[in-house]
Design a protein around this nucleic acid. Structure first.
Lengths: 343, 343
DNA sequence: ATCGATACCC
DNA sequence: GGGTATCGAT
């Protein structure tokens, strides 16, 4: 028996808007600790981790650990039917293959319940390491979203450089180039507008704007976003959910090549294990971009699904593997099992 | 070396929104006088003239006259990346084939620079005559925009009639007819809402609503619009830009035929010199409109490009020529050189 | 079908 | 000025 009552139902609505573009189907894990999810995006390039701690719910009953496979698309559809001020209750009976979402209007004059079929999703629980980051940038989430959106109109990738002066976002595209520098500012009176940089080491990394813009869908969840960067590690983009937990996105950096190296790569065929695949949806653009060897965070070491372990604070390994661009699902090019069978 | 600093950067954003629909590529001319542009719309029917006087800039440095060809589409894209409160600086080095737009947030915490390639646009500088107009209507720009939009849902052309009582906008379409009369009102307390008519002679002229609605994109630039009308002259629709200059649109009137004449024209093939051409982008609309003989302001006497002459106050001739609907570029039907080579 | 742009409302 | 909703484009 599962019964989770969330007074601020809009949080769940926003959470689904924040992840449904990236992940179509996923298992929600429910334990005494909280309600959580962890999934690779459908192209196996990025990873989403959600945690809603039990303390954040008005009422939280979870008799035994459950892993419930859901279509996030359909779940989002149902949650859209909840008013922003509605109280949302999630219910599931033991052994049931459905889940129920209940929406109560603030006045209690309207009570709705939506039942959704669960699905069997074969995923393994991924371990995500705690890591030390060379630079952590904290900035207004809306500003980060605006920058990613703007740069996305110019180019496909963003180079993020952190120095102690500030953080620079750069891109380059057919129509020109763009650089946006945000200086550190400890806005004391308006902490929501602060930009704070904790930096051990200057870092410069490159990422696909396409994913950054997907991550930015979480903007309504938090006024601030935290971007944690280290060379050779996936970036972590985190939106804290007040009193409850977070949505975190992980994305492996692309290997940045300067022009010369790029030229060399052209003649050197990408090796098999780099899994260079054609981009699934080549944008209609000058296809001048040479094939590049990219790094991917494709396979995370899968942790045996001991249980429906909630805490993401466990510390297994993350292997950085060569990155592929968005791939057609399951055209596995090596013998390793894919992390998820569901795309 | 060019460096223009505009504190109210939103003006430039609005200017581009106001002209980019009409003109795809154009030369910006920069001289000690100011920053200006003059271009025919892509179908060579309407003309846009922009002037931003140097006095309106916080800092204005223009060592020598420059004519810089830009893709207005791309320039608009970049300016969209500026915040509405940003300070915008335009920079170009001598001999450089790029231009840089710098955006500074009001707090100076965010500084962006966007570099755009210039293009070589073969345009001649058009002379625009100062003319006496039989009637000048000054009215709220939003009201004018609303009228054009509304009439555009009913018909394709608007008949503007000015009498001393007021100005009447009329149209006729498949579903019926519409007449909107605006009476003169010298709103003293709210001058922005005034409608003022200066009239020597009653005037009635007909214009394509399609263009009027493009002109109305400039509405955010000014609370009032000025419409200057004379029989046989292109209408001038002017939006003043506070402290800086203006955006002016010129459009030749159509020859208005009543039903009987129209019927006759149907049987009478339009003469060669009327240059009736197929509409380049036939909107998905009931193509019942019979071919009509229209007047065009297609060829303005081109003034030799003495220099990057800024002032539009020079007074060459405008020849009123039979109007064509939007044409495929450069299917010239007579020996005269087209005014612009770039479409 | 999805995304982006635009128009309207708060 | 921001958010939402609708419409058009890809």
């Amino acid at each position: 028996m599962l019964e989770l009552r969330l007074v601020q139902g809009s949080i769940l609505k926003k959470v689904l808007e924040a992840i449904k573009d990236l992940v179509n189907d996923a298992n929600f894990d429910c334990s005494a600790t909280g309600f959580s999810l962890q999934a690779m995006d459908s192209s196996h390039v990025a990873l989403v981790a959600l945690l809603l701690r039990s303390e954040g719910f008005e009422h939280y009953r979870c008799d035994r650990n459950l892993s419930m496979g859901m279509s996030l698309t359909n779940m989002a559809k149902m949650l859209k039917c909840a008013g922003n001020d509605d109280i949302v209750t999630i219910k599931a009976d033991d052994g049931s293959d459905t889940i129920t979402f209940m929406f109560e209007s603030p006045t209690q004059d309207k009570i709705a319940d939506f039942e959704m079929k669960l699905m069997d999703i074969d995923s393994e629980h991924l371990g995500i390491p705690e890591a030390e980051y060379e630079a952590i940038v904290r900035m207004p989430s809306s500003e980060f979203a605006r920058i990613c959106k703007d740069l996305g109109t110019i180019g496909d990738t963003v180079v993020i450089s952190v120095t102690k002066e500030g953080v620079k976002f750069s891109t380059r595209g057919d129509i020109g180039t763009a650089n946006i520098v945000c200086r550190q500012n400890t806005s004391i009176d308006k902490p929501e507008e602060a930009t704070i940089i904790e930096m051990q080491e200057p870092v410069t990394l490159t990422f696909a704007l396409r994913y950054m813009n997907s991550f930015a869908k979480a903007t309504p969840l938090a006024t601030q976003v935290t971007i944690s960067l280290s060379s050779e590690l996936p970036v972590v983009v985190e939106y804290k959910i007040a009193e409850m937990g977070y949505v975190r996105y992980y994305l492996a950096p692309k290997i940045e090549e300067d022009e010369e190296i790029e030229a060399r790569v052209e003649t050197t065929k990408p090796k098999a294990e780099t899994k260079s695949k054609a981009e699934a949806k080549p944008k209609v653009e000058t296809m001048e971009s040479k094939p590049k060897v990219k790094k991917t965070m494709s396979e995370l070491e899968s942790k045996p699904q001991v249980d429906t372990e909630i805490e993401a604070e466990s510390k297994p390994l993350v292997e950085i593997k060569p990155q592929e661009e968005e791939t057609k699902p399951q055209t596995a090019t090596n013998g390793e099992a894919e992390v998820m069978d569901v795309e």
